[in-house]
């Protein structure tokens, strides 16, 4: 059913979505190909998180379609979408605060049918985030911000996703932790997992992405390869605080 090669793993087409009488997304189309990290950038309130909620089935779009592996998933429930291989790391980490780190991670595998392999996957997640191994028996609320973000990412990985939706991983974290998270995301991509990354820190996001989309007031205004976007005058001025001629290595310290 899924053609090989560059066929889009995820494709969103002409999405309109919103809450109540407020429309947030207007005719949004986007594609994440297999093994690609795609950054979704844009100002607060542009609709980035809303787009992720539509993809993971938490919000029904008013118009448009989402397909994954060529299969339409627009009207499916979040539970079905997880089973198809899309895991969502929500903004603000959303761990289960009173449950232990181990319980949080294991709950990530809740929807899986192949339970025999879950223990091995837990080992792999703990190898990605060794600090979590020492914290397994602690309630999640006692973790530091960086550790919580690692646990949230680890929990999503326990679902063995082929596409990861990550919402603002750098929120409230120091540059060293952000760097470590981005390296893990790079590892995942090399392992064949596609990533749709929503990120406020445009420098960080574009430095680690293949391609990027700019979402402004609910519309996609620009899309290109990540390096090209980093050099784009409007992006440099609006998000990186750099004038067109400025020399600077892209990254969080450039802001």
């Amino acid at each position: 059913m899924t053609p090989a090669g560059l066929e889009g793993v995820l494709r969103a087409e002409h999405l309109d979505a919103g809450y109540g009488s407020v429309q947030v997304l207007w005719d949004v189309s986007l594609e994440v190909r297999r093994g690609e990290v795609v950054a979704l950038i844009g100002p607060n309130g542009a609709g980035k998180s809303t787009l992720l909620r539509v993809v993971s089935g938490l919000l029904r779009p008013r118009r448009g379609a989402v397909t994954f592996d060529g299969r339409e998933i627009t009207r499916r429930t979040p539970e079905e979408i997880v089973r198809l291989g899309i895991a969502h790391v929500p903004q603000g980490r959303r761990l289960f605060p009173d449950l232990t780190v181990a319980e949080n991670l294991m709950l990530g595998a809740y929807a899986r049918a192949d339970r025999a392999q879950v223990a091995g996957d837990l080992d792999r997640v703990l190898a990605l985030f060794p600090v979590l191994r020492e914290r397994l028996a602690l309630p999640a609320i006692q973790l530091s911000g960086g550790e919580q973000q690692m646990a949230a990412l680890g929990r999503a990985l326990m679902a063995r996703p082929r596409l990861l939706l990550i919402d603002e991983p750098s929120l409230g974290l120091g540059p060293i932790v952000v760097q470590a998270l981005m390296e893990v995301i790079g590892d995942l991509r090399r392992g064949g997992t596609s990533v749709l990354l929503v990120e406020q820190d445009v420098g960080v996001a574009l430095a680690h992405a293949d391609r990027g989309y700019v979402l402004e007031t609910g519309r996609i205004t620009l899309t290109d390869r990540a390096e090209a976007l980093l050099g784009h005058a409007a992006i440099r001025a609006a998000y990186l605080g750099l004038a067109v001629g400025d020399v600077g290595r892209p990254g969080s310290q450039d802001r």
Binding site: S56, L58, P78, E79, V82, R83, P90, F96
Partner: peptide, 8 residues
Amino acid sequence: DAAQVLGI
């Protein structure tokens, strides 16, 4: 909400 995105 977090439970839901894990497939519960």
